[in-house]
Design a protein around this nucleic acid. Sequence first.
DNA 1: TTGTACGCGTTATCAA
DNA 2: TTGATAACGCGTACAA
Lengths: 335, 335
Amino acid sequence: MGLPGQPTLEMVATEAGVSRSTVSRVVNDSPQVTPEAVAAVTAAIDKLGYVPNRAARILASRRTFSIALVIPENTAKFFADPYFATVIQGVAMHLSSTEYTLSLLIAPELDAEKTRRYLQAGNVDGAIILSHHSDDRSYLLLAHSIPVVFGGRPVSPEGTVASYVDVDNVEAARAITEHLLAHGRRKVATIAGPLNMSAGIDRLLGWREAVSDAGLDTSLVEHGDFTPASGAAAMRRLLDRGVPIDGVFAASAQMASGALTVLREAGLNVPGDLGLVTFDDDYFAASAVPPLTTVAQPSVEVGMRMASVLLRIIDGEQVPAITMLPTTIVERTSA
Amino acid sequence: MGLPGQPTLEMVATEAGVSRSTVSRVVNDSPQVTPEAVAAVTAAIDKLGYVPNRAARILASRRTFSIALVIPENTAKFFADPYFATVIQGVAMHLSSTEYTLSLLIAPELDAEKTRRYLQAGNVDGAIILSHHSDDRSYLLLAHSIPVVFGGRPVSPEGTVASYVDVDNVEAARAITEHLLAHGRRKVATIAGPLNMSAGIDRLLGWREAVSDAGLDTSLVEHGDFTPASGAAAMRRLLDRGVPIDGVFAASAQMASGALTVLREAGLNVPGDLGLVTFDDDYFAASAVPPLTTVAQPSVEVGMRMASVLLRIIDGEQVPAITMLPTTIVERTSA
DNA sequence: TTGTACGCGTTATCAA
DNA sequence: TTGATAACGCGTACAA
């Protein structure tokens, strides 16, 4: 009667001459099924080309086999930042060897509440919050109801319980600043990130350590929000101070690229008059004129590790809360 | 009794003093509900923080509100190619303003069959096949059962019925080759892509048109598979021919970067001894030494358009099967 | 306009 | 080891 349509578990059962329960057991490879039954069922499955219906399975089992990757930014920033693309790639890559599906959520601050509800409504087994460029307090509570892994240490008022994957921003910032100092720069400024993100805080800290250890002036600080425009504005404010500057550490390559245009307009040569180093080895750093010496962070690896940690948490394993990944310095010609 | 757990439609109904059907209608904003009922229901929803259960909804409605992005490559290539990351970003961006969820499938040739079954089993409403770097015949049949959009013109034996989004590879390749000719190059070779992908075919065609129109030798062709290693090998074969070459068009920036290392080893200077141009304005092109003059294709836009076209097809709209996006030439110093 | 009742395809519980 | 049978949470004819 009627068209067969997509084969269902029921049809497999009939074909194999067993009950639906048995088919279900075979599909979920339960150990307690006789070899004969297994053989009959797998044969039927192959013959019919049966694939379990995901929705039905989720509904009945209360497991979704999917995780969310939340990017708390508006689409414009998401669009502009190559970092996100590479991290996604890492997450997807790890997931590809598992049963899990990825659900990408670009969630501006505005509907953070809505997003949180969606996540709490049992639509995913866990979530990765990529807070690299954003405040994330609203997501901290989430960790109480479902497994969560943060990308970048979340800034929390109290002690954090959430897991996260990050690089040592303080150390990396210090190292790249010392690179500047090693090239003889003595009036070293920084275009820092926002202070409500750990990357902003830590990179400023690293810069300050390096400069202060060298006995130099630590007051040459202006802030941006990691975007090119904000980097340009900060650079302008720095120049407007009227004090001599011969080195700048910009906390993101995007800000550095903005700063570069301002320097060019001001008739300043890089690296002739001034050394410029930055953070992120992306398109902005590589294609700048001149190409920028920078801190490279393993963003694909960050994605992979976040996924791996999250899945292990979901599986009930005991995983260290903090995963630190190494950075390297890529020397180009801007220092 | 017991804990409330996640609020269900049923609980909302009780809270609002109506039936589940009415709640369902409000949630799916059906027009035929009295304002009072709507008010009562929305109030209850807000109070309870209700979010529909995705799986249940999918199961009952036979719509998944999710689409698949299939990348028919092994994880290594997926990892290495920046193109994928940007396209994904585009797809995700478009989807973020819709109800749809993205499901990323990295599917090596090996389990293409399995992937196709999954897609046909009704687990998604449609699929995007990113065939940029791969053969895709196995997915052409898919278009008969669910809405499908290809990234890059699929190579099909018969006339294609599937929709696709692409750039004019022939024209772009011709233009960049002419750029080489305009700089006085006269012995212009090409490192072409594989002939089982439209990008490979078309870019070779464009190169040949330009070279032949200039009355020059069109025999300087070697093939690669778009990877750096294959580009290096092809360049080596080109040099081994022993005939003079003063220009090369590599069909991908990755191959160009491989070729560059071979040229360096051979003691050949770019652009001094030989001009090198390529395709894709990615990290490889920008950070090469020297930076490469190249064809830039709008990969984020490609992603956005594929998503938009697919959703419109799903909604039953009539959409032009072919979407062509413009390319531009980015001049650097390698020509 | 609203409610009743059934079905979506699977897993889980319990008996046999 | 297997098989009935009851959920899982929602959409939707159909009836009221």
